[in-house]
Write a protein that binds this DNA or RNA. Structure first.
Lengths: 225, 225
DNA sequence: TTGTTTCTGTAGTGATCGCTACGGTATGCT
DNA sequence: AGCATACCGTAGCGATCACTACAGAAACAA
């Protein structure tokens, strides 16, 4: 057990029997579908087996246990999410600041439409807090932290010289929170149009918040504390 | 089965054996704790039985099945949430519009701190979408819809004459989404101070969004469509 | 051919799942 | 007292849970 692939690859691309990596993909895909519908506990090996067409023994050949399987699902979904974002977290060209800002949010909205499972499953895991932490949850929180840092970096160039580091972080946190909330609202209502419209409004809201942070910054009220 | 209390109450307050309503409360309390930690599937009757100190048969005497139990938990948590809000969704006295607005948000933040289980469990249920809908989820979505309507009503007096009905609804939706997101962020990070500070910022953000909606309204651009 | 590695199919393991049958006991009604 | 109702305790139902033992099938290497 615990013999992972990636060690071998001897001359020929695929080793052993006909399938292998393909089976691994099918398992991950099935697990992704089910987990994003039913959460951690609702994802049973029997269900994954049925939907992937592979027996439980194959699942356990490819993955150590259910926990690792779900963690692999998170990792894979995160990569899909990054693909859908097209690496475009850094700002691109645009006219006014607001236009560039809103266009960034629009990219985010589209990515959430094309690859919703990462955030959906991730939020489900985030809200759980069982005594024994699922490693899938830990992994999600880790990559989410990275996303926050990227947003902070992006905002640094957006609001260069206008906001201090603390303000930028607050704004980035509020942004991600609002995006999470709007995502949930769309998942519940299924209203894609309202979802996209909300992102326009969110742009104005965040810029309003930035204005507030600026004026706070002007009058030297609150220090580091 | 399906013989519900509340029908009886003949002269004496409590009927039957010593406990009864008290046991029902203990079961609900145990189920609330567990469900808010582990979600729907993670809430097993055996666990509720253990934590409440009552056998499974008692649980099934008080509730038809697990589904109804969880729905009762949602209902109870919602009432706690309403208590924590103190019925203060309608605006109270204040000086500037922004101050009244932010004070309303602050009340919401405090209620979320004092009674977090309603939203926590509700969001977990919202994100799930198993084929057979849990009635707990349906109930949550229903009372949540009511909350949205109350927010809309509240905003109507806040922005009377300044925003049209569609704008008010958009703003209310964005508000609830942002609150959801901030709530999740706090649950993950455990940072209560950052949570409260975010609500201040959210106030500015929403007022900024309201400004945007106003100016949209001034130039008669988008119609009902 | 013989052996090795890689993956699948069959058939389970004990534990836990939601749920129930049923008797017992405490209470209230008459 | 007699009877009914309300609730708890024990014990266990079939189903499903995560997980595994093990043999066989298909590809490689020698």
């Amino acid at each position: 057990m615990a013999v992972k692939r990636k060690v071998g690859k001897p001359a020929t691309t695929r080793s052993g029997r006909a399938h292998g990596d393909a089976s691994r993909e099918r398992i991950l895909e099935a697990a992704r579908e089910i987990a994003s519908e039913r959460g951690y506990d609702g994802t049973s090996i029997a269900l994954v087996s049925e939907r992937s067409g592979l027996p439980a023994s194959s699942i356990y050949w490819h993955f150590d246990d259910k926990d690792q399987l779900l963690a692999a699902v998170i990792e894979r979904s995160f990569n899909h999410w990054l693909e859908a974002m097209g690496g475009r977290i850094t700002p691109r060209g645009g006219e006014t600041l607001e236009q560039r800002f809103v266009s960034l949010l629009r990219v985010t909205a589209r990515a959430l439409t094309n690859a919703p499972d990462f955030l959906r499953l991730g939020l489900m895991l985030s809200l759980e807090r069982r005594p024994e932490e699922a490693s899938a949850r830990t992994l999600f929180l880790k990559v989410r932290e990275q996303t926050l840092e990227q947003t902070v970096a992006s905002y640094k160039s957006f609001f260069a010289g206008e906001l201090d580091a603390a303000g930028i972080r607050k704004l980035a946190t509020l942004t991600m929170a609002a995006v999470d909330g709007l995502f949930i609202a769309r998942e519940v209502s299924g209203d894609q149009r309202a979802f996209e419209a909300s992102f326009e409004l969110l742009g104005a809201a965040l810029l309003g918040a930035a204005e507030r942070l600026k004026s706070r910054n002007a009058r030297p009220r609150r220090s580091k504390s």
